[in-house]
């Protein structure tokens, strides 16, 4: 009996040691196996192109022969600097960005406030205001082109009922930018409202209770409890919307109908994203398109830095 257990013990020992070794090996190497598929794709299609854009922007590259690169130094950038259409696109991107983002986020904030009430059919309202998010840029823009039509559009028809003259939405600078912004606002207001709603529901209830005990009215509670608690979320949505506005492309492309990537007869609603596309895939200058891309990147970094500074000041002031 004793001999038997003595014989079994080393075997058991060995098995345990083997298992421990395998365990150690697994803990050591398996994490890399787990992240490898992601990073493989991420490096090939995310990181590499991002950096290579900068390299391509220093070259002459034509769409007709995209693998042939010819050194050009900073020529693409200096050419951009002198191109009035670049500055026009930058200006348009900024104005359309402001016209679309500011009302969108304000409405979303109000909408979230309303959705935060105890409501009958609250899920219906939430899904309904999110349906524009399910609509693609292309489908939405095609519909809005009709709605904003000069001769038979519903918007002008409604204006006519109110006694106003029809507006040539597409050909005016401000009117076309307003129309393009309307598409953006329509698609994203509900989405942002849900983000705000999630943040509002995370505000601790006793904050409101003590505010109510101090005699704060509901409007005061909204201003002094809700808004301050939502600051980080608001900042976040501002950043995301700004990035979205910087890359605006599909709406101005399709708002122009069959007339191409010019963003209107006078380029009145050509954005940076559309200008990049026009330079690269209409005028066939991929190198120049890369330079535009990196300029956009710099602008985003600038916005990021400003955002960080504002965020720091907000934190300090609290």
């Amino acid at each position: 009996m004793t001999a038997l257990t003595a014989a079994r013990a080393p075997a058991e020992e060995r098995r345990r040691a083997r298992r421990a070794r395998r365990h150690r090996r697994a803990t050591r190497w398996s994490p890399y196996a787990f992240i490898a598929p992601f990073f493989l794709f991420f490096a090939a299609f995310g990181l590499f192109p991002l950096l290579y854009t900068g390299w391509a922007s220093l070259h002459r590259v034509e769409l007709t022969d995209p693998t042939h690169m010819e050194w050009a130094g900073l020529h693409n950038y200096s050419r951009l600097w002198d191109d009035e259409f670049f500055w026009n696109a930058l200006r348009n991107t900024f104005t359309i960005g402001v016209i679309s983002t500011v009302p969108q986020l304000l409405m979303a904030l109000g909408l979230a406030h309303l959705l935060n009430y105890r409501l009958r059919g609250s899920m219906f309202f939430r899904v309904a205001i999110l349906t524009p998010y399910a609509t693609s840029v292309a489908a939405a823009t095609l519909v809005f082109v009709l709605l904003f039509g000069r001769d038979y559009g519903m918007v002008n028809w409604a204006l006519g009922l109110l006694g106003f003259d029809g507006i040539d939405w597409q050909n005016g600078t401000w009117t076309s930018q307003l129309a393009v912004s309307t598409i953006v606002i329509w698609r994203w207001t509900g989405y942002n409202a849900l983000i705000y709603l999630a943040a509002m529901q995370a505000v601790p209830g006793d904050l409101y209770e003590s505010a109510a005990l101090d005699g704060a009215s509901r409007r005061q509670q909204f201003r002094h409890v809700t808004i301050p608690s939502l600051r980080p979320t608001i900042l976040f949505t501002v950043v995301v919307s700004t990035i979205g506005a910087t890359q605006l492309f599909g709406e101005p492309l399709l708002f122009n109908g069959s007339a191409g990537a010019t963003g209107g007869a006078d380029h009145q609603y050509q954005t940076l994203g559309l200008y990049l596309y026009e330079q690269g895939w209409v005028n066939l200058h991929l190198g120049r398109a890369s330079a535009i891309a990196w300029t956009m990147f710099l602008i985003l970094l600038l916005i990021g830095a400003v955002n960080w500074l504002i965020g720091r000041r907000l934190r300090k002031s609290r």
Binding site: F48, P49, Y52, T53, A56, F249, L276, G280, A293, F297
Partner: peptide
């Protein structure tokens, strides 16, 4: 937009 040119290449 930032990676579209190399991707296309």
């Amino acid at each position: 937009q930032l990676s579209v040119v190399p991707l296309y290449m």
